[in-house]
Simulated assay, not measured.
Amino acid sequence: MTSAKRRLAGVLAVLLLTMTGVATPAAAATNLTVLSFNIWMRGSHGGIGSVVNQIRASGANVVALSETGGGATEAIADALGWQHTEPGWDIDVISALPIQDTDWKSWNDTGARAITAKIAGVWVYAIHLDYTKYGPYNACFDKDSVSTILADETNRRRQAEQIAEWTGSSPGIVAGDLNSPSHQDWTAAAKSRHCGYEVAWPTTKAFTARGFTDSYRKLRPDPVADPGDTWSPVVKDNQGRPEPQDRIDFVFYRGGSITPESTRTFGGGTGWPSDHLAVLSSFTVS
C-alpha cells in the first residue's frame, strides 16, 4: 500500500468510527512536576551530589535551574540521566521527559535572559531576574516611599515584561528566581508581615498581565496564613537587622490544557544546598 493510500485509509477509519458512534481513544494526560530551584553559585555550597539528591527526593520530572554555569547543569543532568538545555548562562531547564525543542533569548538593554524547552507540548521557561536594588530592603531598612520602591524596580519590571512578551500566547510554564516579592503577597491584609507596606510589585504583575497564573497563590491563596517564603532558609541576619523573609521564587502557568494539582515549597534543613527554598508545582497537561 502506498503512503497516500495509507493516509486515506486512516482518514476513512476515523470517519467510520465517528459515524458509528465509537469514540477514538483520548490522548493520555501527562504529569509535569516542575521544580524552581536556585542552586546557589553552581551548587558550590553543598556539592552537585547534594543538588542531585534533592531533585530526586522532590519527585520533580522537570527543573528550572538558576545560578548554574561552569558545567553544573551537565553534571546534574548526567547524574540523573536527564536531558538539558545549554545556553551557557546561569539558567537551564533539565527534564526526565524528552525535550522536543529549545529556544533562548537575551535583551541587551536590561540584561534579561530566558531559556525554554518544549516538553510534552508545553514550553517550560527558566528565568532569573536582576538582583540589585532589592525591594524589601528599600521598605524594611530604608523606609522608602512606595513610589521610590517602584522606581527602583524599573529594570526588573522591564526584564519581566520583556520575557513575558517573548513567551507569546501559547500554553507555558515560567519558573525561576525573580528577586522580587509578589503583588499577591504584599497586600493590605499582610502589611504586618512586610514592615507595614502594601506594594503592587510589578515583576509578578508583568506575568499575570500576559495571562499567567501563580501556581502557589492559585492553590494557596492566603498570603497571611500561607506566606510560602523562599528567601531565605539560611540568611536570617543582615548586619544585625532581621533579614526580610519573602517569597521570591515562582512557578507560573498559562493555558487551558494545564491544570495545577499541587504546590509547596521544598527543601531546607541540614544539608540543604541552597540559600533559597525551591518551589514544587505539579500539573496535569491534557
Rank of each mutant, 00 (worst) to 15 (best):
M1D: 07
M1K: 06
R7A: 14
R7I: 14
A9I: 14
G21S: 09
V22D: 01
P25N: 12
A28Y: 02
L32G: 00
R42S: 01
R42W: 00
I48D: 08
G49V: 02
I55F: 13
A57E: 08
S58R: 10
S58T: 09
G59V: 11
G59Y: 10
G69S: 15
G71I: 12
T73R: 02
A79G: 13
W89N: 06
D92Y: 05
S95G: 12
A96F: 14
D101V: 04
D103F: 10
D103T: 11
W104Q: 10
K105Y: 06
S106L: 01
R113A: 06
W123V: 10
A126F: 02
H128P: 04
N138A: 05
F141A: 07
K143T: 04
S145W: 14
S147A: 15
R156Q: 12
Q162K: 13
I163K: 01
A164Q: 01
W166E: 03
V174Q: 00
G176E: 04
S182M: 08
T187K: 05
H194S: 11
C195D: 12
E198S: 07
W201L: 07
P202G: 05
A206D: 08
A209D: 15
R217D: 00
P221D: 03
P221M: 11
P221C: 05
V224T: 13
A225K: 07
D226G: 08
S232W: 07
P233A: 08
V234E: 10
V234S: 13
D237I: 02
R241E: 01
E243L: 00
D246L: 00
R247W: 15
V251E: 13
V251W: 12
R254S: 02
T270I: 12
S274R: 13
V279D: 07
L280A: 03
S281G: 12
F283T: 06
